[in-house]
Design a binder for these strands. Structure first.
Lengths: 189, 189
DNA sequence: TAGGTTTCGTATCGATCACTATGGATAAAT
DNA sequence: ATTTATCCATAGTGATCGATACGAAACCTA
């Protein structure tokens, strides 16, 4: 998982995986069928072990603004954990691929879309409860937040520290409309 | 350039380049030395032909907020041009690579850092002119804006339309402190 | 027109890719 | 103890990678 996270799907060779796992090629293929299946298992493991902060943040019984704050600050921490590759596996795992690996790229895109949809669901809930203005575009704001998190993933990969990512997250939070207030996400211009 | 933009450095094979350029392998190597040099030439061409909006926006004689607005909206348009690969070559060209292509990955990171530095310079100028609050962190805000643009690049790659990217850009602009106002980029929490 | 030079495409180089067949070592059974 | 069966690492499969050696064709000069 760490190798795929660091080098992406295609650039991670079986020789690297073999050495890291201490297994012979037949053992790997006996256990994981093929490289693509192994990658998908790594994705599932990543989803379960590394980004629990997202589900926690979005499902916590707190006001919407606080949920989003936890989401972004959780990302800041998860994307810069010491001893782990920087950024998010769903972003760096297969952003640009050869035509042969299109299926893997699509799989990751699906994960990213699911994250955005989860954010949108939480925003819609917050709107229903009155945490967010009536005229706020749930989809547009979810796309902004997902985009910010993806951007944090790139910044983390470029060496941003956890403190720098936290500042970025706090800055992004300033775009959130204050509760009860009625304003569009953007000023008209 | 389009092939590297779409598939990234490593996943773009010489066979694809050969077919796209209509050249024989010796012609390619005679003209560009090797694949890495060809990629660097593509980077320079991309810088000159595709992202002029950034330099224009940052050097235009307009208030800082307007400059940033032009920067983000220019990115929205540049990252979703019809007939062009989505996103930014500097992001998708080599985000995760094999150890052999580390030099290329570092080169792209340098481009991204330069973009962030250019934004920081413009912000520092705006602060000096009084467009921005005294206590605003130039580096922190530049990292936010660069991160948002990187995030827009991912969203564009996932199929976001130019309108959706514009909404994202407008949303991101809401994090900009209003002129003359004195506030930190983030509320304290 | 003949000779010498230069250009240029084909065919191939060694290396590495994901992946697997096979031979030897070990364990189980008679 | 001897045979049978099962496992498993080594060695190698065809394919493709980036890069190039070599022979043929074209061109300029004499």
């Amino acid at each position: 998982m760490h190798l795929f996270w660091e080098h992406g799907y295609e650039a991670t060779s079986l020789a690297m995986l073999r050495e890291a796992m201490g297994l012979t090629p037949p053992q790997i293929y006996n256990a994981f069928t093929d490289k693509e299946t192994l990658f998908r298992k790594a994705l599932m493991r990543y989803h379960q072990t590394e980004i629990g902060f997202a589900l926690e943040a979005l499902s916590a019984p707190v006001p919407t603004r606080e949920a989003i704050r936890r989401l972004l600050l959780g990302a800041a921490e998860a994307y810069s954990r010491p001893g782990k590759p920087g950024g998010c596996l769903f972003v760096s795992g297969a952003l640009a691929t050869s035509p042969q690996a299109q299926a893997v790229a699509d799989e990751l895109k699906t994960y990213r879309k699911a994250s955005e949809a989860a954010i949108a669901d939480r925003l819609a809930n917050g709107k229903a409860v009155g945490d967010l203005p009536e005229n706020l575009s749930v989809e547009g704001f979810a796309k902004y937040l997902a985009g910010v998190m993806n951007g944090m993933s790139i910044q983390a990969r470029d060496g941003a520290s956890v403190e720098e990512l936290r500042v970025l997250a706090q800055t992004a939070l300033a775009a959130l409309p204050a509760e009860g207030q009625n304003q569009t996400a953007s000023s008209k211009e």
